[in-house]
Design a binder for these strands. Structure first.
Length: 319
DNA sequence: ACGCTTACGCCTAGACCACC
DNA sequence: GGTGGTCTAGGCGTAAGCGT
């Protein structure tokens, strides 16, 4: 079927050059030198016997023939990408790779996963705890997209903490989020400084879950204290933790009070290791989102996991 | 100085063939 | 069938040249 096709790289070079109207920019995109791109285009013109560009000094113009074939060529590349994605999605039909932030994986997913495994013994689940680097912050949509592409290249489904702006993927909000102070019951009973009202926080160690800085700009402590109308608490003091799970462990040990996501502390609250001393919960702009590619969404294992996850999240919100 | 093309040469992978 | 040598195509880089 492909016997009459010129080399694929020549077509890639042509498409990139036509899109950028520049050999240099196409070369940068393809990670080769401009000479290599020029070679490819020349080879393609020789192969087809058709001139593709009119060359001017420091400028290129597509010929009518080239312009006419470009839409079909792009469509062809799009189809290739989709076909390859579909093939990737089918590696190990009964294997499911789920990427999730470490704290979510440990504190929300793990306590529930046994129910999915019991109902779907034929599916082998691989959970991959992934960290979005703080360096991604502020690098713009392209960097965000590159990180997401990287995650999705080896995951069937991903749970992301963010704002749900992931074009090109199937995205569903899994859990809207709130934050509130969480601490050990021991702190409430502290005879010297009982934790009765938010003002009493000035007498306690503040534990910082730094996850909040990544996507909401403001620290969780600042967010909650502002909403509570409390002043006079120095939010600069206290230890910082890169993951909510670490801050929660510190809280369990009675080190202090952390403002973080109560959804990550349910099991500990149920076991009376932790509690929320104040009723106020402040909603976040960010939420946990369920993300998968169009291609992998059609896989039965992915569909089953997605459905189960959304049902678990719905139960959570009703509770 | 810049963007592009061209000549030349190197490297790699695959096809083909002869030989064991 | 396996191995080794040769040829060819594809891919790319460097250096030089061209025109503005």
């Amino acid at each position: 079927m492909t016997a009459r096709l010129p080399p694929l790289n020549s077509l890639k070079a042509f498409e990139a050059t036509a899109r950028h109207r520049s050999v240099k920019k196409a070369a940068a995109e393809l990670n080769v030198t401009p000479a290599a791109v020029s070679h490819q285009i020349k080879a393609l013109e020789d192969h087809l016997g058709v001139q593709l560009f009119r060359r001017y000094n420091r400028a290129l113009e597509l010929t009518d023939g080239a312009r006419a074939c470009l839409p079909k060529l792009r469509e062809g590349f799009d189809n290739l990408v989709q076909a390859v994605e579909r093939l990737r999605a089918y590696r190990g039909a009964g294997m499911l790779t789920v990427s999730a932030p470490p704290s979510f994986a440990a504190r929300w997913l793990m306590p529930r996963l046994h129910r999915f495994l019991a109902a779907h013994a034929e599916i082998d689940v691989r959970v991959s705890a992934r960290v979005r680097q703080a360096a991604d912050q502020g690098r713009g949509a392209a960097a965000e997209r590159a990180t997401l592409d990287d995650w999705m290249a080896d995951s069937d489904i991903a749970i992301l903490y963010g704002r749900g702006e992931y074009p090109g993927f199937q995205v569903e909000e899994l859990l809207p989020l709130t934050v509130t102070p969480i601490c050990s019951p021991k702190l409430l009973a502290d005879p010297r400084h009982p934790l009765v009202g938010p003002e009493d926080l000035r007498h306690h160690m503040l534990l910082h879950d730094d996850t909040g800085d990544l996507y909401d700009g403001e620290s969780f402590w600042e967010l909650w204290l502002n909403a509570a109308g409390v002043s006079g608490v120095d939010t600069r003091r206290g230890p910082h933790f890169s993951h909510a799970v670490l801050a929660l462990e510190a809280a369990i040990e009675g080190l202090g009070v952390v403002v973080t996501l109560p959804v990550l502390a349910e099991a500990d609250m149920h076991a009376a290791r932790l509690l929320t001393p104040f009723a106020l919960r402040v909603s976040l702009i960010s939420a946990y989102y369920l993300v998968c590619s169009e291609a992998s969404a059609t896989r039965p294992a992915v569909a089953a996991f997605r459905q189960w996850l959304l049902a678990e999240a719905a139960k959570e919100q009703k509770a």
